[in-house]
Computed example of a mutant assay.
Amino acid sequence: MDSVLTTVGLPIALAIIMFGLGLSLTADDFRRLRQAPVAVVVALGCQLLLLPAICFGLVVLLDLSPLLGIGMMLLAASPGGTSANLFSHLFRGDVALNVTLTAINTLISIVSLPLITGLTIRYFDRQDSVELPLVEVVQVIAIVLVPVAIGMLVRSRRPAFARRMDRPVRIGSAVILAVLVIAIVVDQRENITEYLGKVGLATAVFCALSLTIGYFVPRLFGVGDRQAIASSMEIGVHNATLAIYVAVEILDEVEISIPAAVYSLFMFAFAALWGRYISRDLARQTA
C-alpha cells in the first residue's frame, strides 16, 4: 500500500482531522477536569486501562495472529475521534464533557499509544519485523499536536470561522475515514475475506463492549445520564484514522491496519443503534 494515498494523502488527511479537532477546543476544555472530576477520571480510566485489558483478553481468547493482535491493541490505545462529539450531540450527551475527554485523551495518547503498542510488539516477539523507533514516535506527536494547536489558535482568533467550519470538518473527517477503509479493503482484497473471518468477531465484540462499558461503568460511580452517554461515545468511537496512520506509515504493515478498518465498519452502526437506545431510555426517564 506504499502509494501517494498513504505517503502523502494519509498524513494530510490525519492533519486535517486533528486541525478540525483543534477548532472545537479552547483552553477551558482542559480545565474542566476540576468541574467534573469523577466523570473525567472514570472515563479516562476506562479508556486507558480497562479497554486495553479487555482488548488484550479478546486477542488471546480468539488467538489472533501477531499482526492482527498488534492492530487490535493499537486501536484500543487510540483516543476518541471527532465523530464522538457528533454522536454525543445527536443522542443528548454532555458534549462539553466529550470535548474535554477528547482533548485530554489525545494528549495522553502521545505517551500511552506508543507504550501499549510497543508492549504488544514485544509480547508477540515481533521486534525483528515491526518497529516503533523514537524518531517515528516524535513524528506521531508532531502530526497530532501541531494541527490541534493550530486549530485552537484559529478558534481563539477567529471563533466565527471555527463555528462555520465545525460541520464541514466533521463530515470531511467521516469521508476521509471512509476513503481510507475502502483503500485498505481494495489493497487487501485478496485477503479481506480471511481477515474479516479472523478479526470481524473481535472488532464487533470490542466495539459493543467499548460502548456499553463506557456507559455503565460511569453510572456505577454516580455519573449522570448525559455524562455517561458522552463517555460511552468517547470510548466507543475511536480515532481509527490515527490507528491506520500508525499502522501503515509508522509500523509499515498494512495488515496491522485491518482491525481499525474493520472496526470502523461496525463503529458507526453500533454507535447509532446504541445511542438511539440509551437516549430513548433517558427521554422516558425525563418524561
Score class of each variant (00 low, 15 high):
I121R: 08
A142M: 09
I121W: 08
A76D: 05
L90F: 10
V144R: 00
M152W: 15
T82P: 08
T120M: 12
V135C: 06
L153Q: 12
R92M: 01
L58S: 04
V60M: 14
P37N: 04
T82V: 05
L25F: 07
R126Y: 14
V138Q: 05
D94G: 02
I70K: 07
C46K: 00
L68G: 12
P147H: 01
E136I: 02
Q35D: 12
A149S: 11
V154D: 15
V95C: 04
L153W: 14
P114S: 13
M152C: 14
I104R: 01
L23Y: 09
Q35V: 06
S65V: 01
L68P: 11
P147S: 12
N98G: 05
T82H: 03
S78K: 03
S83W: 02
I104C: 01
L67V: 10
Q35C: 03
V135E: 15
R158H: 14
I110L: 15
N105D: 11
A43H: 00
L67S: 09
T82Y: 01
S129H: 08
I116T: 01
L97T: 00
T117E: 02
N98W: 00
D128N: 08
S156W: 08
P66H: 14
F56Y: 10
R155A: 13
L113N: 04
R34W: 14
D94M: 03
